[in-house]
């Protein structure tokens, strides 16, 4: 495996609790008691989850999610 590591990042300032990411990528996102989204663990996206991560990013109405690549 030589692919670059992808991370899912949630911008706390932008998240308004629509909760779509949690439903589209349940293994990558958790929701706190107030309804805000956070990336699970350190946000690493396993290769088999990359499509779900992409869907979650694309469907955030606030554009609060992004994918970053570790160099």
């Amino acid at each position: 495996m030589t692919g670059k590591q992808i991370r899912l990042v949630v911008d706390d300032e932008r998240c308004q609790g629509h909760n779509r990411c949690r439903l589209l990528a349940p293994d990558l996102i958790e929701i706190d008691d107030l309804g805000f989204a956070h990336a699970k663990g350190d946000g690493r996206v396993p290769p088999e989850q990359s499509e779900k991560a992409r869907l979650a990013v694309k469907n955030c109405p606030e554009f609060a999610l992004r994918l970053e690549t570790d160099d």
């Binding site: 308004q16 609790g17 629509h18 779509r20 439903l23 589209l24 469907n59 109405p61 606030e62 554009f63």
Partner: peptide
């Protein structure tokens, strides 16, 4: 229904400012 990708609040830069208040 889940996921529910409705557009009741719109989407993107003009997404409803009052979404949290409405919820």
């Amino acid at each position: 229904r889940a996921p529910n990708l409705h557009l009741a609040f719109g989407f993107g830069t003009h997404v409803c400012l009052g979404a949290s208040l409405a919820r």
